[in-house]
Nucleic acid binder design. Sequence first.
DNA 1: ATCTGGTATGTGGTATATCAGATTTCACAA
DNA 2: TTGTGAAATCTGATATACCACATACCAGAT
Lengths: 225, 225
Amino acid sequence: MATLVPLDAIATASLREHVHRALRQAILSGQYAPGTRLNERSLAQQLGVSTTPVKEALRQLEADGLVLTKPRSGVIVRFDYAWAEEMILARAAIESTIARLAAQRITDADIPALQQVLDEMRRATADGGVEDLIRLNEVFHDLIRSVARANYLRVLNDRQDVYDSGARRVIHMDPRERQQAFDEHSAVGAAVIARDPAGAEAAMKAHVLRAGESFLTLVFSKEKD
Amino acid sequence: MATLVPLDAIATASLREHVHRALRQAILSGQYAPGTRLNERSLAQQLGVSTTPVKEALRQLEADGLVLTKPRSGVIVRFDYAWAEEMILARAAIESTIARLAAQRITDADIPALQQVLDEMRRATADGGVEDLIRLNEVFHDLIRSVARANYLRVLNDRQDVYDSGARRVIHMDPRERQQAFDEHSAVGAAVIARDPAGAEAAMKAHVLRAGESFLTLVFSKEKD
DNA sequence: ATCTGGTATGTGGTATATCAGATTTCACAA
DNA sequence: TTGTGAAATCTGATATACCACATACCAGAT
């Protein structure tokens, strides 16, 4: 007898979410240069949907800060080096706050799962595939968020993803980067388990900022003003 | 000869912005209890508009984190004590990051304006009206943001307003609160002018957290779990 | 040549109708 | 009484048509 698992998020998402995802990816990966004008009608046509979900997705992108809507004039992409830099600062600020909460609120029941993920990460760092590492990375950060019992902060965090999937893959292939990231994750995990709020906050902030730097130099290689 | 000033933002705002503002205010002021279901059609009818701007405003509220949309089922208000608490943490994290940037990026040309606002605040704290103080508060924080040349962070910041206008007015009437807020603003301003990033960040974080506490105890008086 | 105002066109903004999934209700059988 | 499931109903999701403002362009005046 077959066992069924819940459909994955991508299958159940509404059109609006699909559009949002697609546009977001296109902007972050640089397919739309800063200043590019996005036209509701042509986007709708390209994607084969009506303008309504496109319009809603654009509204979400506006909230994400990736796009600026000039009423009755146009929707303009805003994402460049300085923008990415600020997004990383924001992410560091929010995720470090989450880490602090996690250290304050962790219970004994939370510890085994955290240690298990760190173990898996250690193995994957040494000899795992890139996809595995990316997945574990997600799992780790998710776990911290859930240990922190953070809800609003999580919503905010979800809007701050600067990494497009291509860049993420490239970064996780570099052995030095892998080791560095693992060390940082360990430090965060240790501080959270030790119930050390200040330490967890500092470790997470350092990690996000450092990883962000790697990303910036890779994606905007040397094109800093 | 008459001189004309640009129309006020409220006059040029689109319906969607009006709806967003109205709903936001209603949620923050407690008119909609946590868990309340918001119905697109009835909201549209009450406000005398069609469902389209309502739908878009709800999408914005979702991005603000004030509302949860269950696809094809309903839109639910989520704003309670814990939520407000997290919003304040987030605001402290973001605004302190902005303050740090301001201290790093301030130029000599920025200083006079900052000092002037602080002077005005000093006077208004002692004997000014509540409306004046609220306005100057806005001006001060805006000035810090513009000195920081922060763009993305500003977008984020705009979505983190937890204070409804009624509560803000009450808070600014208390003399002790006024003095305390002024001292904190002074500290932030001094650190920024002194080009002390760490000091500015710490001062701003302390200010936002402390003011947030006042707000929480006022609005959710003692109903903490 | 340059400036002015009108006009055509493009764009997001809004209203409305319809679709399809979620929820509720309730008759009816076990 | 309890559980089942089908139908009615409620709700957001989507498609489409139309509107009003922004912009670009052009003719005519200076």
